[in-house]
Design a protein around this nucleic acid. Structure first.
Lengths: 199, 199
DNA sequence: CAGCCTATTGAACATCTGTTCAATTTTCAA
DNA sequence: TTGAAAATTGAACAGATGTTCAATAGGCTG
C-alpha cells in the first residue's frame, strides 16, 4: 500500500523545479524543457500531471500561497490573543516566512506580473489579498477608531507589498528584518496616535 | 532641411506602439510582430532603429522614466520652496502623472518584473529609485530628526511602490487619488510627530 | 530626367517552445 | 514468476518568434 501516491510526489517535484527555475531565470524563461531538466524528469510528464505548462505554473503559485497561509495560521495561534501582537505576527510572517525574502521575492513579483494577464493567477492573487486585508482590518478594528480602520489596513498592505517589490528589485540590498521593522513602526505609531486621541 | 530627423519620428512611433502592446497584452506577449502591426510599420524596422527587440524595450522604459522625471521637475518648480509642499508634489507626480494610474501601472509592473532578470533594465530602474530616494531624503531632512530621515524615506518609497503594485493588480479597484491621499497622510503624521517631539 | 542615397519592406531562415503519443519501463497484485 | 495496468520517456510535430538581407520605394540633387 502506497502511503503517498506517486502522483503527488511527482507533482511536488515538478512544482519545486518550476519555482527554482522561475526564481533563477524569471517567469518568461521558465520553459517546460528547463523545468523538466531541473526536476530530472521528462518533458511529457508536465502535461501528464498538470495538463500543460499553464497548469503547473498555477499549481506552483497555489503552493506558494498555501505555504504563506499555513505559516500565518501557525504563527498567529502561538501569539496571545492581543490584537497588537497579532498584527505584528502578520507582518513577521509576510517577511520572515519560508526562505529569505531576497530569494522568493523575485518569484512573487514574477507571479504578480503574470497575474495581470492571466485570469486564473489573478483570482488566486485576489483571494490572498482579500484574506490579508480582512485579517488586518479585524485586528485594527480593536485598536483604532472605526473610521481609520480601512485606510490603515490599505496602508499596511501597501507597505508590505512595497517592501517586497523593493526587495525583489534591489537584489539583496534591502533586508527583510529592516522592512518588517519599518512596517511594525508604522503600526505602533498608528496605535499610539489612537491612544492619544482617546484622552 | 529636416528639423526633426525621420529616425527620431520612427523611434517614437515604435516606442509608443511597444508601450501600447505591453499595456494591453503584457511584456511576454509584446512581440515584434504585434508592435510593428500596431505602429503600422514593418518588422524589419525594429532591428534597423533599435538593433533588436531588446533595444526597443529598453528605449521604451527609458522613455517612461524620462517622462516621470520631467513631470517631477516641472511640478516641483511650481511649488513654493516649502519642504512639506514639495514632498506632497513628489507624491502627486508619482500618482497622477501621465495617464491614469490604472493604465500605466500594468506597464510599470511589467518593466519591474523584467528588470529583475535584465541588467540593462535593472540599471535604469535603480537610477530612478535612487533619484526618488534622495529627493525624499533631501526634503525630509528639513522636517524630521536626522535619525528618522532614512527610515521615513524608505517607508514613503515603499508606500508609493506598494500602491502602484496594488493598482496594477486590482484592475481599477484602487484609485490613484486615494492612494496619493494615504501617502500624504503618512507624511503629515510623520511631520506632526516631529513637531510634537520638538516641544 | 537620371542617378544616388536613405528609408523601408517582408519573405526566408534558424531557433525555440509546448504538446502529443506510441514505445518503453516500472510496479505490484495474483 | 507473470502479466496487466500505471508511470514515464523523448522524438516528432506544429506553431510562433527574432533577425537578416536582398529587393523595393521614395525623395533629393545635379
Amino acid at each position: 500500500m502506497r502511503r503517498i501516491s506517486i502522483g503527488s510526489i511527482r507533482r511536488q517535484e515538478l512544482i519545486n523545479a518550476a519555482l527554482e527555475v522561475i526564481e533563477q531565470h524569471g517567469f518568461h524563461a521558465a520553459t517546460v524543457g528547463k523545468i523538466s531538466q531541473v526536476s530530472g524528469l521528462s518533458v511529457g510528464i508536465v502535461s501528464h500531471y498538470f495538463g500543460g505548462k499553464q497548469g503547473l505554473l498555477e499549481a506552483a503559485m497555489r503552493h506558494l500561497l498555501s505555504l504563506l497561509q499555513q505559516e500565518l495560521i501557525g504563527s498567529i495561534k502561538k501569539m496571545p490573543n492581543d490584537p497588537c501582537l497579532r498584527l505584528m505576527a502578520i507582518v513577521d510572517v509576510n517577511f520572515s516566512g519560508q526562505q529569505t525574502v531576497g530569494k522568493s521575492a523575485k518569484t512573487w513579483v514574477a507571479f504578480w506580473s503574470q497575474a495581470m494577464y492571466s485570469p486564473a493567477l489573478a483570482r488566486l492573487q485576489r483571494v490572498n489579498e482579500l484574506r490579508l486585508f480582512s485579517n488586518l482590518k479585524y485586528y485594527l478594528r480593536q485598536i483604532v477608531p472605526d473610521d481609520q480602520v480601512t485606510a490603515t489596513a490599505h496602508t499596511v498592505a501597501a507597505l508590505i507589498d512595497g517592501f517586497w517589490l523593493r526587495a525583489a528589485l534591489s537584489e539583496g540590498r534591502l533586508d527583510s528584518d529592516k522592512a518588517a521593522a519599518l512596517c511594525k513602526t508604522y503600526i505602533e505609531q498608528t496605535i499610539q496616535r489612537a491612544k492619544m486621541a482617546e484622552l
